[in-house]
Amino acid sequence: MPLLRIENLHTYYGHVHALKGIDLEVEEGEIVTLIGANGAGKSTTLRTISGLVRPREGRIEFGGQVINHVPAHKIVQMGVCHVPEGRRIFTTLTVMENLMMGAYTIKDEEAIRENLRRVFDLFPRLAERKNQLGGTLSGGEQQMLTIGRALMSRPRLLLLDEPSLGLAPMLVKAIFETIREINARGTTILLVEQNARAALKIAHRAYVLETGRVVLSGPAQELMRDERVRKAYLGER
């Protein structure tokens, strides 16, 4: 049984039909990436899974439970954490307070300390800056904080939306290495990226979205060799 199974998902923004019947599966332990142009429905897919928007049709199953109508804050408790696009840290909260908000669903102090240790182990920079306000961090550090904050809930499934957006090339490389590392330590990842090449390199499988539909899917290595993908998303002629 896959960890996440999505069937025939339709989502609307007002009258705009953003997702037109998405089918998608993520197995425990995988990195799966969604690639596609702007407006293809990648972010909407993540937002529908995490409960920020409601699907009009279809079903989302996580760990065997249907979560279509579960409120967003309860979906987090079930083990799905969504890192939205654009490094939305709490700017006037300290780094430590940001991380504690990530652990909001956890009551056990010992578990919180353990998760904090793991996050600081992954991002030593955050430990150095734990008492600074989030807004004073650099762009790369803010991205580390959004990911670190999400990991504080120890999710089974991490939804990452454009983690490399707006980062310097050196940092982009570091972020992708970190994603691979997080996966190696046991977290399943669903990754949305504009940077298709980097995403396909670390992913096990991929889905290509166009105007709200899945047009291609398969192992990442295969898609990387696919003529259409190379032309449309990897910038080759």
Partner: peptide
Amino acid sequence: TRIGTAMRAVSLDHEVSRLMGIDV
């Protein structure tokens, strides 16, 4: 306190607060 911090988080961003598991 934890709830007080959540209150400040909600002041900054409802959506991300929900994604933290906060009942906004």
